[in-house]
């Protein structure tokens, strides 16, 4: 569905060249749900803007939905849906009028555009709001209008740029429900950007981690967490000799063991399995564990392992 080769984009900012996307090779198969995860400024939006023909790349090439973004931008545009970061409906226009315009923009006849407008209004539970202007809608309602606009022509491939940013938890959940349901019903390939870790973790079937304009990891959330962060077991002991003995016993389970005073921490592939065995091994060695704890990694740990930085710090900044 998407194939890029060395796709790159530079910007000139006050006579300096800033590289936003530094050569990305990305392949997305039909039907996938891919989340591009990365801190603000990682190049996610720039990548998306290139794939949706809004921005020409500085170098590299890409085929989207079977069409080349450079030589057949019109073909790409006709086949994709795009929901940007900002709200898509014009402030002066009624919701249904905008939907009809959108349908006409994709070449539907007036009658067909009206039909489709009413269909998507129903799909996204927007019927009571059809005659309203965007200014009178809540954030979640406006986002639903954006999705309706993006789906008017039943695209096979949908791009969403931070679909749930700025929404309250309830609206976020509802937006996701709609996206996932429509994806099932219309058999869509979905590519989205997010900096919400939990969202990428729970919703996406594949997570592509982007940092400084490059792809630094690519896989399912499970794979990434297992490969790059791993589960951890932490136990505390009564005295330091015990901690030393516990670390020795741990060598059988893990090659990453850290001792800090009375605390022993080891990385294991599956903590829930390893914990009982480890505790038995400690008992056999005559070591008394005072506390035992399991930590499972988040995608933030993955990002930390890859870059030495936390995604959360970035968000706070």
């Amino acid at each position: 569905m998407i194939h890029t080769e060395g796709l790159a984009r530079e910007f000139r900012v006050r006579r300096q060249t800033v590289t936003a996307v530094a050569g990305i090779d990305l392949h997305v198969e039909p039907g996938e749900l891919v989340a591009l995860l990365g801190p603000n400024g990682a190049g996610k939006t720039t990548l998306l803007r290139m794939l949706t023909t809004l921005l020409p790349p500085t170098s590299g090439s890409a085929t989207v939905a079977g069409c080349d973004i450079h030589s057949d931008a019109g073909g790409v545009r006709a086949r994709i849906g795009y929901i940007g970061q900002k709200n898509s409906a014009g402030e002066n226009f009624r919701v249904r009028d905008e939907l009809v315009t959108q349908g006409r923009s994709y070449g539907l006849t007036r009658a067909r555009a009206r039909e489709r407008a009413d269909e998507v209004l129903a799909q996204l539970e927007l019927e009571p709001l059809a005659q309203r202007k965007p200014g009178t809608l809540s954030g979640g309602q406006r986002r639903r209008v954006d999705i309706a606009l993006g789906l008017i022509h039943r695209p096979g491939l949908l791009f969403l740029d931070e679909p749930s940013t700025g929404l309250d938890p309830q609206s976020r959940a509802s937006i996701w429900e709609h996206i996932l349901r429509l994806r099932r019903e219309q058999n869509m390939t979905v590519v989205l950007t997010t900096h919400y870790l939990e969202e990428a973790d729970r919703m996406a079937e594949r997570v592509v981690v982007v940092d400084h304009g490059r792809v630094i990891a690519d896989g399912t959330a499970e794979q990434l967490k297992n490969d790059l962060a791993g589960d951890h077991l932490t136990i505390t002991t009564e005295n330091e000799p015990d901690a030393g003995a516990a670390a020795t016993a741990a060598a059988r389970f893990s090659d990453e063991v850290a001792v800090d005073g009375l605390t022993v921490r080891l990385r294991v592939p599956r903590a829930v399995r390893a914990m009982p065995e480890y505790l038995r091994a400690l008992e056999a060695a005559g070591v008394k564990a005072v506390t035992a704890d399991i930590t499972q990694p988040t995608l933030d740990d993955v990002f930390l392992a890859l870059t030495g930085r936390s995604l959360r710090d970035d968000q706070a900044a």
Binding site: T52, T53, L54, G74, R77, A78, I80, Y82, G84, Q85, K86, N87, S88, A89, G90, E91, N92, E98, Q102, S105, Y106, G107, D146, L149, G150
Partner: peptide, 18 residues
Amino acid sequence: SLLVELMGGSMERLLVTP
């Protein structure tokens, strides 16, 4: 009116259509 649409997202949305 065009400026407002450019600064919001509605112009971008139309630019992604054919």
